[in-house]
Computed example of a mutant assay.
Amino acid sequence: MRQADRIKIAKRIVQELEEGQTVNLGVGIPTLIPDYLGDKHLILQSENGLLGMGPTPPADEVNMDLISASKAPITMEIGASLFDSSSSFAMIRGGHIDVAVLGVLQVDQTGEIANWAVPGETILGVGGAMDLVVGAKKIIIATSHTSKNGEAKFVKELSFPTSGITKADLAVSEHAVFKFEEGRMKLVEILSDISIEELQEMTEAAFTYDRLLVKK
């Protein structure tokens, strides 16, 4: 995926985040969000033990002892704190995270997520995925629309191991924004120069949409 598309996704998700929320940023695209908050103040949490994550530092100020969940250099906001993994997960499991922004391998048309294992491939473990899916009050997905192999990530049913039965609320790809409500997936915004028909071809999951989204 082009970096420009990754940034577009991060910027669009910022629009969904509310002033003062505590937001966990997962691996990948979510960790771009601190660079595009503008004047919006959020409390950003990284599961590797930081509350108060700031944007990417200038190259001459990089400290690789201070990194995001994606192992990219970050800064700390005034009042930020560092802590161990058990404290980090106590925040997550205790329901203190307003929003979790997560990458996915797949998401089905009801909003169920698979983001930690591919059958037949070696993995390091589930990490914080299952805790975040259960513990966060709202789940937003940040993802490329298809895999590197061109396979659909938005699927009818998961073929990869689930991250938990809690459903996502919103998903943002480089092409579209979807909401998940009452077990259904609805297209609410098109983000690229693409037709509904083209979007349907690359989206295995069934989705509804308002006719006003159809280009004349």
Rank of each mutant, 00 (worst) to 15 (best):
Met1Cys: 15
Ala4Met: 13
Asp5Lys: 14
Arg6Phe: 03
Lys8Met: 13
Ile9Ala: 13
Lys11His: 10
Arg12Leu: 04
Arg12Phe: 04
Gln15Ala: 14
Glu16Phe: 14
Glu16Gly: 01
Leu17Met: 10
Leu17Glu: 07
Glu19Arg: 09
Val27Ile: 15
Pro30Lys: 06
Pro30His: 05
Ile33Trp: 08
Tyr36Ala: 10
Tyr36Trp: 13
Gly38Pro: 04
Asp39Gln: 12
Asp39Ser: 11
His41Thr: 13
Ile43Ala: 08
Ile43Arg: 12
Ile43Phe: 07
Leu44His: 02
Leu44Asn: 02
Ser46Asp: 08
Ser46Val: 11
Asn48Thr: 12
Asn48Leu: 12
Asn48Cys: 09
Leu50Pro: 00
Leu50Lys: 02
Met53Asp: 03
Gly54Gln: 02
Gly54Ser: 03
Gly54Asp: 03
Thr56Cys: 08
Thr56Leu: 05
Thr56Gln: 09
Pro58Phe: 10
Asp60Arg: 04
Asp60Thr: 05
Glu61Trp: 11
Val62Glu: 15
Met64Asn: 13
Asp65Ser: 12
Asp65Phe: 08
Ala69His: 12
Ser70Asn: 05
Ser70Arg: 04
Lys71Asp: 14
Thr75Phe: 01
Glu77Asn: 12
Glu77Gly: 01
Ile78Gln: 14
Ala80Ile: 11
Ser81His: 07
Leu82His: 05
Ser85Ala: 10
Ser85Pro: 00
Ser85Gly: 02
Ser86Lys: 14
Ser88Trp: 03
Met91Lys: 09
Ile92Ser: 03
Arg93Gly: 08
Arg93Lys: 14
Arg93Met: 10
Gly95Cys: 10
Asp98Trp: 01
Val99Glu: 01
Ala100Gln: 05
Leu102Glu: 03
Gly103Ile: 01
Gln106Trp: 04
Val107Ile: 15
Val107Gly: 01
Gly111Ser: 04
Gly111His: 01
Ile113Tyr: 02
Ile113Asn: 01
Ala114Phe: 07
Asn115Phe: 08
Asn115Lys: 11
Trp116Phe: 15
Trp116Pro: 03
Pro119Ala: 14
Gly120Val: 14
Thr122Cys: 01
Thr122Lys: 15
Leu124Val: 09
Leu124Thr: 12
Gly125His: 05
Asp131Cys: 07
Asp131Ser: 11
Asp131Pro: 00
Leu132Val: 03
Val134Ser: 06
Val134Ala: 12
Gly135Asp: 04
Gly135Glu: 06
Gly135Thr: 04
Ala136Gly: 02
Ala136Asn: 02
Ala136Ser: 13
Lys137His: 12
Lys137Asn: 09
Ile139Trp: 00
Ala142Arg: 03
Thr143Trp: 01
Ser144Gln: 06
His145Met: 01
Asn149Lys: 14
Asn149Ala: 15
Lys153Glu: 00
Val155Glu: 00
Val155Pro: 00
Lys156Asn: 11
Lys156Pro: 00
Ser163Asp: 09
Ile165Arg: 12
Ile165Glu: 12
Thr166Asn: 09
Ala168Asn: 07
Leu170Trp: 06
Ala171Phe: 02
Val172Arg: 05
Ser173Asp: 01
Ser173Gly: 09
His175Arg: 11
Phe178Lys: 02
Phe180Cys: 04
Gly183Asp: 03
Lys186Gln: 11
Leu187Trp: 13
Glu189Ile: 13
Leu191Trp: 14
Met202Lys: 14
Ala206Phe: 05
Thr208Phe: 08
Tyr209Ile: 09
Leu212Arg: 10
Leu212Gly: 04
Leu213Arg: 07
Lys216Arg: 11
